[in-house]
Amino acid sequence: MIEKQKKAKAYWKENVKYLFILLAIWFLVSYGAGILFKDALNNIRLGGFRLGFWFAQQGSIYVFVVLIFVYVRLMNKLDKKYGYDKD
C-alpha cells in the first residue's frame, strides 16, 4: 500500500512539473510575444501581417493547441512509466 502511494505521489509530481513547463511556454508566447516583445516582432512580417500582431491574435492560440497535443503525448508516456495505462 505504501509503495502504491509513493508511486502515485511521484506520478503527480511529474505531472505537475509538465503542467508548469507547458503553461510557462504558453505564457511566454501569449504574453511575451503578444505584448512584451510586440514592438521588436512587428519588424517581421508573416503573411502580410506584423509578427507581434499575429502572435497576439492567432499565434498564442496555435501554440496552445500544439501544447495540448504535447501534453497528451507526455501523459501517455507518464502513464506507461507508472503503469497507469492499463484499464
Score class of each variant (00 low, 15 high):
residue 57 Q to H: 14
residue 44 I to G: 06
residue 30 S to G: 15
residue 86 K to C: 01
residue 9 K to S: 07
residue 16 V to L: 05
residue 23 L to A: 10
residue 36 L to K: 15
residue 11 Y to M: 01
residue 14 E to Q: 04
residue 83 G to D: 04
residue 53 F to T: 14
residue 56 A to H: 13
residue 67 L to A: 06
residue 71 Y to A: 04
residue 57 Q to N: 12
residue 52 G to F: 02
residue 73 R to Q: 13
residue 17 K to A: 12
residue 7 K to P: 14
residue 74 L to I: 06
residue 10 A to P: 10
residue 86 K to L: 02
residue 77 K to A: 06
residue 9 K to E: 07
residue 55 F to G: 03
residue 74 L to T: 07
residue 67 L to M: 10
residue 34 G to P: 13
residue 68 I to E: 03
residue 47 G to C: 11
residue 18 Y to N: 03
residue 2 I to D: 00
residue 45 R to E: 02
residue 54 W to H: 08
residue 29 V to F: 03
residue 67 L to T: 05
residue 58 Q to K: 12
residue 83 G to F: 04
residue 17 K to G: 15
residue 7 K to H: 11
residue 2 I to V: 15
residue 87 D to G: 08
residue 33 A to S: 10
residue 24 A to E: 13
residue 87 D to R: 13
residue 69 F to T: 00
residue 55 F to V: 06
residue 38 K to R: 15
residue 16 V to H: 12
residue 63 V to Y: 04
residue 45 R to K: 13
residue 19 L to R: 15
residue 42 N to M: 06
residue 83 G to S: 12
residue 73 R to V: 15
residue 46 L to A: 00
residue 34 G to W: 11
residue 67 L to S: 07
residue 46 L to N: 03
residue 75 M to A: 08
residue 76 N to M: 00
residue 59 G to T: 00
residue 57 Q to G: 10
residue 27 F to K: 07
residue 62 Y to S: 04
residue 53 F to N: 15
residue 72 V to C: 13
residue 35 I to Y: 10
residue 80 K to G: 05
residue 76 N to C: 00
residue 47 G to M: 10
residue 18 Y to W: 10
residue 64 F to E: 05
residue 87 D to L: 05
residue 60 S to T: 05
residue 7 K to S: 14
residue 59 G to N: 08
residue 71 Y to E: 03
residue 55 F to Q: 10
residue 37 F to E: 01
residue 2 I to C: 02
residue 79 D to I: 00
residue 39 D to E: 12
residue 85 D to H: 01
residue 38 K to Y: 07
residue 31 Y to P: 11
residue 68 I to W: 01
residue 72 V to I: 14
residue 81 K to D: 04
residue 32 G to M: 11
residue 68 I to D: 00
residue 74 L to A: 01
residue 47 G to D: 07
residue 13 K to R: 14
residue 1 M to Q: 15
residue 3 E to P: 15
residue 81 K to Q: 06
residue 42 N to G: 11
residue 39 D to N: 15
residue 2 I to Q: 06
residue 12 W to A: 01
residue 61 I to T: 03
residue 3 E to Q: 14
residue 60 S to P: 11
residue 69 F to E: 03
residue 80 K to L: 02
residue 46 L to H: 05
residue 27 F to S: 06
residue 25 I to M: 10
residue 87 D to Q: 12
residue 39 D to M: 11
residue 45 R to D: 05
residue 69 F to S: 07
residue 67 L to V: 07
residue 21 I to V: 01
residue 12 W to Q: 08
residue 22 L to F: 09
residue 65 V to M: 12
residue 15 N to L: 02
residue 55 F to A: 07
residue 73 R to S: 14
residue 59 G to F: 01
residue 45 R to W: 09
residue 4 K to M: 15
residue 26 W to P: 14
residue 70 V to E: 00
residue 51 L to W: 12
residue 52 G to L: 02
residue 73 R to G: 14
residue 5 Q to M: 07
residue 29 V to G: 05
residue 64 F to K: 13
residue 55 F to N: 08
residue 5 Q to E: 08
residue 36 L to G: 09
residue 21 I to A: 02
residue 31 Y to A: 00
residue 41 L to C: 07
residue 60 S to K: 11
residue 68 I to P: 10
residue 68 I to L: 04
residue 58 Q to C: 01
residue 80 K to M: 05
residue 19 L to P: 12
residue 12 W to L: 04
residue 58 Q to T: 02
residue 35 I to V: 14
residue 43 N to G: 13
residue 11 Y to N: 02
residue 32 G to P: 15
residue 36 L to I: 11
residue 78 L to T: 04
residue 50 R to Y: 05
residue 3 E to F: 04
